[in-house]
Design a protein around this nucleic acid. Structure first.
Lengths: 97, 97
DNA sequence: CAAATAGTTTAGTTTAAACTAAACTACTTC
DNA sequence: GAAGTAGTTTAGTTTAAACTAAACTATTTG
């Protein structure tokens, strides 16, 4: 099969999470607060999928767990994701939210 | 939503098809022959999906229909796909088949 | 140690994509 | 125009991902 990274970035929800933790860590709770249309459990499961794929790492501090992307693990997908997130239309869409 | 191209390349089967028609056109039948684990109908449906996303185009000649990728439609995903398909491990995998 | 906070895991359900079999369309050749 | 070849479409089924609710673990604070 192709690199696992392709499977991982195939999900819009996981891409949403990745965008949040791309350049700075975010706690699981903060990630959940950014996507209130799903339960905390659902977010946690997606984080686990990303962990299993080696695409994020986590740091525990007090009661919180802080996730961030392991950008070096994305290979050629990193550039694509950054391009898409930088894209003018994408920015426009975010602004409209 | 993000560009439709991400949805389209989220499927391993569609990526397989795209790889086949990336640099030269292939008839629907030739594409099907390259993936004998699914029916011709299944291949045809995936080709339709790719057509609807504007990622392939088709040319009819005689009884055959020749598909090829519209590489210009892939944006930043084009580079990623090419990188992945050029990847040494990927080549190795193909050699082993 | 009880209660609160932060997150994970389990078990089961929902949903959507991918698939198959078979009917159908279109073109070609005899 | 019948038969064959090439491909598409339809209707229904299978499968897997994503989800929810609720139980659970772990840490902190009173």
């Amino acid at each position: 099969m192709e690199p696992a990274v392709l499977d991982a970035i195939s999900s819009p929800r996981r891409r949403e999470i990745l965008r949040l933790v791309w350049r700075e860590e975010q706690s699981a709770g903060a990630i959940h607060r950014a996507m209130p249309d799903v339960t905390f459990g659902a977010v946690s499961l997606q984080l686990r999928t990303l962990m299993d794929a080696g695409l994020v790492e986590v740091r525990t501090e007090q009661r919180s767990r802080y996730y961030r992307a392991r950008r070096e693990a994305f290979g050629p997908a990193a550039q694509m994701l950054e391009s898409i997130w930088d894209d003018a239309l994408w920015k426009l869409k975010l602004a409209a939210e």
